[in-house]
Amino acid sequence: MLSEAAIKEIEAIRAKYPTARAALLPAIYVAQREFGWLSPEAYEAVSDILGIPKAIARGVATFYAMYRHRPMGRNVVQLCTNVSCMILGAEKLVDFLKNRYSLEPGGTDPDGRFSLVIMECIGACGTAPAMLVNEDFYENLTEKYIEEILGKYK
């Protein structure tokens, strides 16, 4: 079940569009936040409130890479490995995350503290390598800097 606040939020989003269907992507974000990931219940909740068949909601959501299609760690590390980041050492950082934090690309560490998602370009090429942790940008990454950053997330 969605919280009262989430329902209000989705209704407010709905009002910004001429059709309920257009509110689907933002509503999925809300549901994902509420349920932690896009569980069947999350889809059902969105489907109910917007009147969109749930299979459709799921089909739409799975098209997009940034939705959480399975349960994730408490924090999501989204590291870019596209060309600009790659040529400035992003791959080594992937290895580092693996060795230092037991974080495999697409995986979650044993404590459920972090999940690692390999990203296509995140628009920080001028300050490569770069990553997002949840919604925060971190740029000009080095191994040491990563340790420092991740220390802040519990």
Partner: peptide, 10 residues
């Protein structure tokens, strides 16, 4: 009227 519509990685 103006609003932001957020994509989701595509």
């Amino acid at each position: 009227h103006l609003a932001v519509h957020q994509g989701a990685g595509a």
